[in-house]
């Protein structure tokens, strides 16, 4: 179902990279709001940013990022757009860009954002709003 109120998607979100996929179960003209196709091309585009997130497996990188995030991002050769995604903690855009979800959790933790807070951000809700939807408030 098309959502006419939604702003136009950036070109890279709807680009023709998905064309080789042929499935009667997917209506490419009207993608489901809030869902994004993961494709090889997107995964490769997100590879550098995914690899950057993998560096947070090391306590040294976590400490360095806490002290000076800009320096760590530059050292890993991230592009300006990738840096912007990180500065804004725009996890939804990272998924669309091609970053793996497990990698996003590693990055969120480096910001001191727990998994519930990450979920709330991705739903575009405040943490308080999000917790109202849970049966038990302190699950994490």
């Amino acid at each position: 179902m098309p959502d006419e109120k939604r702003p136009a998607r950036p070109a890279w979100e709807t680009e023709v990279e998905i064309l080789p996929i042929r499935s009667p179960q997917i209506d490419f003209a009207h993608p489901l709001p809030g869902t994004y196709l993961t494709t090889g091309a997107r995964a490769q585009r997100g590879y550098r940013l995914s690899k950057f997130c993998m560096a947070f497996m090391s306590p040294e990188t976590r400490a360095a990022f806490k002290a000076d995030p800009e320096r760590v991002m530059t050292e890993h050769g991230l592009s300006d757009y990738e840096k912007t995604l990180i500065r804004e903690q725009n996890f939804n855009a990272m998924v669309r860009y091609g970053v793996n979800a497990f990698m996003i959790f590693k990055l969120a933790n480096a910001f001191g954002v727990n998994q519930n807070q990450t979920g709330a951000k991705m739903r575009r809700e405040s943490y308080e709003e999000f917790l109202k939807t849970r049966n038990v408030k302190d699950a994490l």
Binding site: S50, K51, M54, M57, N100, F102, M103, K106
Partner: peptide
């Protein structure tokens, strides 16, 4: 492995 021991390379 949740991308803990291995990476996509």
């Amino acid at each position: 492995d949740h991308a803990n021991s291995f990476f996509f390379d």
